[in-house]
Simulated assay, not measured.
Amino acid sequence: MPDEAIGTSARRAGAAETSPGISTPGITRPDPGVVARLRAIGTATISGELNRLGVRSAAITGPVPRTPGATVAGPALTLQCLPKREDLALADEYADPERSLHRHVLYHARPGDVVVVDARGDLESGIFGEMMLTYFAAQGGVGVVVDGCIRDFGSASRLGIGLWLRGTTPNFHSQTALMPHAVNVPVACGGTTVVPGDVVVADDDGAVVVPIALAEAVAERAEEHLEWEEFSRTRLAAGGDLRRYYPLTEAARPEYEAWRRSRAEQQQGAQRAEQREERR
C-alpha cells in the first residue's frame, strides 16, 4: 500500500511491502500547503517560534549544510541505525541487498520528502551513495539529513537535493560500525527526536523539526513574525534605532500598522492593474 498525502484530516499510512516478504511502515504526511509556507519562512524564525510554543530546541545538531543555498521542507522518512552485530548485518555490500533496510526507507519516497537518518554520529559508515541518492532524487525527494556520513559526495552533491551531513567517507553503509535497523520509527537525529511525518525544514543555518501537530500554528505565528521583521529591517537599513525596531516595540507599533496598511493598498493596486491588463 503506498504512502498517501493528507490534508487536515490526518491518517496513518499503512505498512508497505517494499520488497517481497519485507514490509515497512508508511508515514502520515502533512498538508502540502503548510509545508510550502514553512519552507518560505526559514529555520531561524521557525526555531524561535517553536521555542515560544514550548519546544525548547528543535534544531538537529551535528549535520551541517553541504549544499550551500539549498532550502527544503518536507515530511520526514526516518531510518534508524544500530551498532553493527556481525550475525545480524550483511558482510558483503551487494549480498542479498533487499535485506538492507537503508534501501527500504527510499522505497517510501514521494515528491517533497526528506530522509532523516539516525546514524549515531558515526563518521565511518556511508549510509547512502550516489546510486541510491540518484533513485531518491528521481522519486522527487528533496533532502537528506544524516547524523553521520554518505559516500560519493562529489556526485551526490550535483543531484539537486539538499544534503545536511556530519561528514563523508569512502565506506559503504555496513562496512564498519553500523547496520540499518528500522524504517519510519521515531529516531534521535543530532540529539533531536524526529517522528515519521514531522516537517523537516533545512537551509544554510541547519535543520529543524516541526512536530506535525504544531505545523499550522508555527506557520501562522512565523508569518506574522516575518512581516514585522520586514518592516523593522527597512527602518534599521535607513538608520533607525535598534532599541525601537528590534524587537518591535509598542512605541513603534502604530508606525508598523500604518506600513502594513500602505503595503496592502499597494498590493491591491498592483493586482487590479494586472487584472486590467489581462482583460485587454
Rank of each mutant, 00 (worst) to 15 (best):
A219W: 01
G240Q: 07
Q266V: 07
G191T: 06
P211L: 02
T71Q: 14
T168R: 05
T45C: 15
G148D: 05
E93N: 05
A13M: 07
D31M: 01
G160N: 04
S23L: 04
S262H: 10
D203C: 12
A10H: 14
F128Y: 15
A95L: 03
R39H: 05
E265K: 13
G239F: 07
V187D: 13
Q80N: 03
E278Y: 05
G141E: 10
E224N: 06
V142T: 10
V199Y: 15
M179G: 03
L242T: 07
P30H: 12
A237K: 06
R272G: 00
G269H: 12
R52M: 09
W228C: 06
C81N: 13
V200T: 07
A202Y: 01
E93V: 14
M1E: 12
T249K: 12
F172P: 00
G239S: 06
S9F: 02
S155C: 04
L106N: 04
R66H: 11
G140R: 15
I60N: 03
T169W: 08
Y94L: 10
A59V: 07
P25V: 00
L106F: 11
G197V: 12
E220W: 08
H108A: 03
P254Q: 04
L123N: 03
V64I: 04
T45V: 15
R37F: 01
V145C: 08
V194Q: 14
V105Q: 12
D241K: 11
L38T: 00
A109I: 09
S125P: 04
K84D: 03
R120E: 09
I161D: 05
